[in-house]
Amino acid sequence: MTHEEIGLSGTPKKSVTIVIDGRKCRADEGEIVLSAALREGAAIPHLCYEASLDPYGACRLCMVEVCHNGKTSMVTACTLHATEGLEIRTDTPEIVKYRNVLFELYLAEAPKSDVIKEMAARYGVTRTRFLKKIDTDDPLGGSCVLCGLCVRVCNEIMGAGAIGFVNRGPYTVVGTPFFEANTDCIGCGACANVCPTHAIRIEDRDGERVMHSWGGGRVRLAQCGVCGKYYAPGALTAATLARLLPPLRDDLAGLCPACRAKRIADEEIRVNMRGGADHHVRPRRS
């Protein structure tokens, strides 16, 4: 990704005016409309949107009505880019009608999810006419809505690719290959963190991180060299440390976050007492 693409090119983005439910708001040109609307406090439900990932448009809950040249159409706000004068409505009778059916579909698909129940209830949907999916063996506990956030974060952000979609259509599920423990998993837990319905179960015990939802895979946790606590998966720690420069890397290796903070603070105090500079910020010349 270039600096231009992530907005670091130095030139500020052009500001445009968009109209949300009759109210004028500012947005950056090209900004995802859902992001701008949420910032403005608009009540648009969504499950598959995450700012750091590519637009996906799968949950269909964020559909808004766009008015263009007098013609209206329904589009997902998470794939819509802000342009000058763009006018959207979030609560037309049509939007409400279709959104309610979608909520009913979600209630049937993830009957165990409290997040879905609460979200649907906020929009006035408390029951579903559709047959509820009951699967007592579901490693995702009947709460997965296939928003794809876990798969995308594992692939796009972590670069691990440990999980993916299996099967297609109504048989689609998320899992590791053959639902077995996957050695590609570094145990980072980003999947569980990003999951909107808290469907992914991960547990740290006995010096290991157990990926209950992903075939019971186990990742060794690194132990702090000072306090002895298990603090993070070893593979993740190694990957993170590899990005640091040697003095800092060597200083922090094998420390838990708390001991790390203490070590840095101690070092700063020691250096400052001597009136020296912070060698972590400015690497020493060899």
Partner: peptide, 16 residues
């Protein structure tokens, strides 16, 4: 059977 399973209306809606 041919739905890819990505979006909810097609995946869940067609099933129902």
């Amino acid at each position: 059977g041919e739905s890819c399973g990505k979006c909810v209306p097609c995946r869940e809606g067609l099933k129902h």
